[in-house]
Design a protein around this nucleic acid. Structure first.
Lengths: 237, 237
DNA sequence: ACAAAAGTGTTTGGAGTACACCCATGA
DNA sequence: TCATGGGTGTACTCCAAACACTTTTGT
């Protein structure tokens, strides 16, 4: 439980956590609920938000983002990239959001500037989603556009998606943060296409990846598929 | 003079203002001086810092960056791009910096997270550099690496330079923010090379720019040069 | 006349793109 | 045996890179 001598209530971090299920790009969202009805006009919360937190008084902002992810997933060493800060003074104006903040933090909250991060994780890991005394789930990025999230989190996700698309152009090895340790060329191609918003030719894609020295072919194939099993690869170094 | 009911002392903006003098890339730095000697151990300040400010209570962070630039140069509609926030808790630990902050803001200052922006301006404009009751000057980006600036401003400038280099790859028209309204192809090529850290071939560069529809040839040539005068161009649309 | 930078075409290699068929596997 | 995706090669196009000489102007 946040404590006013430990926390800095002016600055927060929010994480847009991307995952890839083999077909679509997903984002991890926290279910926002307040069960206890404190007074008559308090609504029940039943919407979603990005994982995030106000920062600790002596905490680096990158460390705060790592902490949020670790509390959420139990994992360390997740790929994290700060992409933008959101400081519009009206972003914390919705009474619904203010009430929720003050309930969950036990702090008097005014304006908050949030520093947003993109995180990439392998969706196949069994994750412990128990942060913020609530649960988290994966949602298709395309579905999210139609949902109404807390604060300005729709905008943050949209911007984070653009950011990671640009980053992948410059650093293609980021794709491997989203794939399982062993993967097929098809999975790599589909992920590549989802992020680049293209549809690559299968043969040309094979040609391209065969020139990547850091992609090593394994002596294994996938299992349990109702067709010819594809060769597995791993990312090396 | 800052006033504690108007200003939010937890968040600031800093601007890395780039200019191009025809040869080298420059950054605008404020001379930091405190003339009045308040007590015996107070040093005289004679170093440099980025233009910046803590934000107003109800001010958007982008607006705060615009305000800083307008106060500094008198200009509006300057190209501005937020690139990173710096929130290491030790960045405001230097007693020298703390003292300076409290003197100039008249506020009790703790930790500050700063949101950093890159700005591009045409160096040929006659600018009114009178912000923060001090003066500002252009410095070569390469010289700055050897200087010791206030706070973590060396790091901010280095990161801002990387940022603008990437941006120019994606949006080549940003180059025209740095050039005078009328410019030669040589100027454009030299600026391009400075930012890409390359040395382009003159003929190949001419070929490339001749395919840019937004680059229009004027019926004028440069003047006062001790050699064949080059044709002038302007950027259209 | 000389110094200094402006301006101008061609060739070549590599990368990207388009395109169609047989193969292996499970049901 | 059938349905489903896996895996493979060639030809064409286009862009980037290499490369040298003549022109214009001021001193």
């Amino acid at each position: 439980m946040p404590n006013s001598t430990l926390y800095n209530p002016h600055i927060s971090v929010d994480c847009v956590v991307f995952g890839f299920d083999g077909e679509k790009l997903k984002v991890l969202l926290i279910e926002r609920r307040l069960d206890e009805q404190v007074d008559e006009q308090s609504e029940l919360y039943n919407d979603k938000k990005l994982p995030g937190s106000i920062i600790l008084n002596d905490e680096d902002i990158d460390d705060a983002a790592s902490r949020v992810l670790n509390e959420l997933t139990g994992l360390k060493n997740i790929y994290l990239s700060q992409f933008k800060s959101f400081g519009n003074p009206t972003r914390t104006n919705n009474p619904r959001d203010i009430l929720w903040l003050e309930r969950t933090t036990q702090l008097k909250i005014g304006r908050i500037v949030t520093v947003a991060y993109v995180a990439l994780i392998k969706i196949d890991r069994k994750l412990v989603f128990n942060a913020e005394d609530s649960s988290a789930n994966w949602y298709d990025v395309n579905e999210i556009e139609k949902m109404t999230l807390a604060f300005d989190h729709n905008t943050i996700i949209r911007t984070g998606l653009e950011h990671i698309r640009h980053r992948v152009d410059v650093e293609p090895h980021l794709l491997f943060e989203l794939l399982p340790k062993k993967f097929t060329i098809s999975q790599l191609r589909i992920l590549h296409d989802v992020l680049h918003q293209t549809r690559s030719d299968v043969r040309n894609f094979q040609k391209k990846v065969s020139q990547m020295p850091y992609l090593v072919m394994l002596d294994e194939t996938e299992e349990g598929v109702p067709h010819r099993a594809a060769r597995l690869y791993k990312y090396k170094k």
